[in-house]
């Protein structure tokens, strides 16, 4: 790869008492990319971001951002890393603009630099009209946008966002996502987003890491993760035909590598198989003169990838604790 790595962790661990919140995390984020850290609540995403900022000390392992040790050079790291926490708050008695000025002063910026930068950022996030209102009156979406402006006050190389899309209405979400995308494309900043909201992440991330129970289950571009799943022999094909009769099911079941076929209440067939059987199914449809209403191979979207990896993590967990037999699915190899 010709890309340089700006963020790198090696064997990063964090223990809270007996609970292992982050388990030997090896992560690499390239300069200028948008990286999505996906996982359910309590997977250790926030802990990881806090360790990257030096706000929590790792129990073991190292993390480097731009060549700076996150646990030791915390001040230098915080100068180049902007952090947008999930529950972002502002001083309610200060206006949006004053809040930004204050952040600028904390970063040692001159007064006029602060004022200029704050005005430009407020325009960029579309808060110019509300800039001189008290931050306590802002809506959730406005707070989030002010949060982005706040992060950009220090002109960071890396921006870490913790659940940035939580509790935002769809329209606000669209704007927010465009804004985040801009940070990467126009400004060339590296962005690390941790989230459990898949669709939003899917739209903006170059690469994602799936994080379950403190461990990174998979990491790569979304398309690659999809094909990774398929190469492990798991295909689901959704087919809707007219007439939706039993004959079709019997014909499909006779195909090699078909594991299961089921029909849901509105007539859609779900065909699980170990191979790509699309051509065979199409043949059946054509030869038996069914009219085809819907034909979709699952596996390409993040939702499924996510779901599959969670299942795997769950399986592994059960294997580890019960070591019961009868699990057909193989645990993740990577």
């Amino acid at each position: 790869m010709g890309q340089s790595t700006i963020l790198r962790t090696h064997g990063l661990c964090k223990k809270y008492g007996d609970v292992l919140a982050v388990d030997k995390l090896d992560l690499e984020v390239h300069t200028g990319e948008v990286f999505g850290l996906l996982g359910p609540n309590g997977a250790g995403k926030t802990t990881t971001t806090l360790m990257l900022l030096g706000l929590t000390e790792p129990s073991a392992g190292t993390a480097y951002i731009d060549g700076l040790n996150c646990a030791r050079d915390t001040l230098k790291v915080k100068r180049i890393v902007g952090y947008l926490p999930d529950s972002i708050g502002f001083y309610p008695d200060m206006t949006g603009r004053q809040n930004l000025h204050f952040t600028g002063q904390l970063n040692g910026l001159d007064r006029d630099v602060c004022a200029r930068r704050a005005a430009a950022l407020l325009r960029r996030v579309g808060l110019t009209d509300a800039a001189d209102r008290k931050a306590g009156t802002y809506s959730r979406g406005m707070r989030q946008r002010l949060g982005i402006a706040d992060v950009l006050m220090k002109n960071p190389k890396v921006v870490i966002m913790d659940e940035p899309t939580l509790g935002i209405d769809p329209e606000g979400m669209r704007e927010l996502i465009a804004l985040i995308r801009d940070l990467s494309v126009k400004d060339g900043r590296t962005i690390l987003i941790s989230s459990h909201q898949l669709y939003q992440i899917q739209q903006i991330c170059d690469r994602v890491g799936i994080f379950v129970k403190g461990r990174l289950m998979a990491c790569g571009p979304i398309s690659e993760l999809g094909s990774q799943l398929q190469s492990e022999g798991y295909y689901v094909l959704d087919v809707r035909i007219l007439p939706a009769d039993e004959h079709f099911a019997t014909l499909v079941r006779a195909l090699p590598d078909v594991q299961n076929i089921s029909q849901d209440s509105d007539g859609m067939f779900h065909i699980e198989s170990r191979q790509d059987i699309r051509t065979f199914v199409l043949d059946i449809v054509v030869q038996n003169r069914y009219s085809l209403m819907h034909f979709h191979q699952r596996g390409g979207d993040l939702d499924e990838i996510y779901h599959r990896y969670f299942e795997k993590a769950g399986d592994e967990h059960e294997h580890a604790s019960v070591s019961g037999p009868g699990k057909a699915k193989t645990p993740a190899g990577n």
Partner: peptide
């Protein structure tokens, strides 16, 4: 409670 502490702590101050 305001959520300003983690924002404050992520600024380059000790």
């Amino acid at each position: 409670a305001q959520g300003t502490l983690n924002r404050l702590a992520s600024q380059p101050i000790y």
